[in-house]
Amino acid sequence: MKYAHLIVELVKRDLKLKYRRSFLGYFWSLLNPLMMMTVMMVVFSYMFRFDIENYPLYLICGQTIFNFFNESTNRAMYSILENSALLKKVYVPKCVFPLARVLSSFTTMALSLLAVLIVMVFTRVRFHLSMLLFFVPLIFLLLFASGVGMILSGLAVKFQDVTHLYSVLVMILMYATPIFYPIEAVPESVARFIRLNPLYVIITLFRELMLSGRIPAAGSWLYAALAALVMFAIGSALFDRMRKSFIYYI
């Protein structure tokens, strides 16, 4: 754990650089999701209508979580490649790079949660004590994204094709995750698979807490926790196998 503070420094660097030279700075993390939500709301209230209670909140919950997953895994994917100069000169445990990137995206997502709160206040959602559990699905999400990020970062070093392939995969995943539509809108034959999508399960946990304050069924919690832990374990194991050969490729 000597390198915990290295992760902290790397996260700090990411955050500093993300908004350096922009006029609104960190404010963007709040503004961006609100603007995206507004655009999607306009599109989906006039063009395709879904019968969803409190659609703005439904949208922004799914979108915040999916955006985090997309951004963190994409940035993690390039983390080893982009730090190659460094890896050739100083010994550091290589997993700090993907993990730091996922964590810095997680920090910006935490800022975006303020946008969720704003939407909740505006749409007059009644406050429930159970809403305070919101962080639990987010922890699952963090573990899940870290696992995926580690796998991608290792693969991208060896096979650059992965970077091209992944953008398509993310798009498929986006449509396979009910972010702007309700799961009832897809035929049951497809919905069956969507319910297995860990991202969908995590988003649904978060949404149910935020929208209704009801505590989701134990099965969903268990499934999400298991999926997150398994993905993190697979990610670390694969990364550990791949890291030894990085030096030959970077």
């Binding site: 660097r13 500093k16 650089l17 350096r20 100069a85 050739k88 000169k89 100083v90």
Partner: peptide
């Protein structure tokens, strides 16, 4: 290690950072 001076510097950060 001084295998290359300035390895690990981030060009966008200041000297202090």
């Amino acid at each position: 290690p001084l295998i290359e001076l300035g390895a690990g510097f981030d060009l966008d950060l200041t000297g202090r950072e």
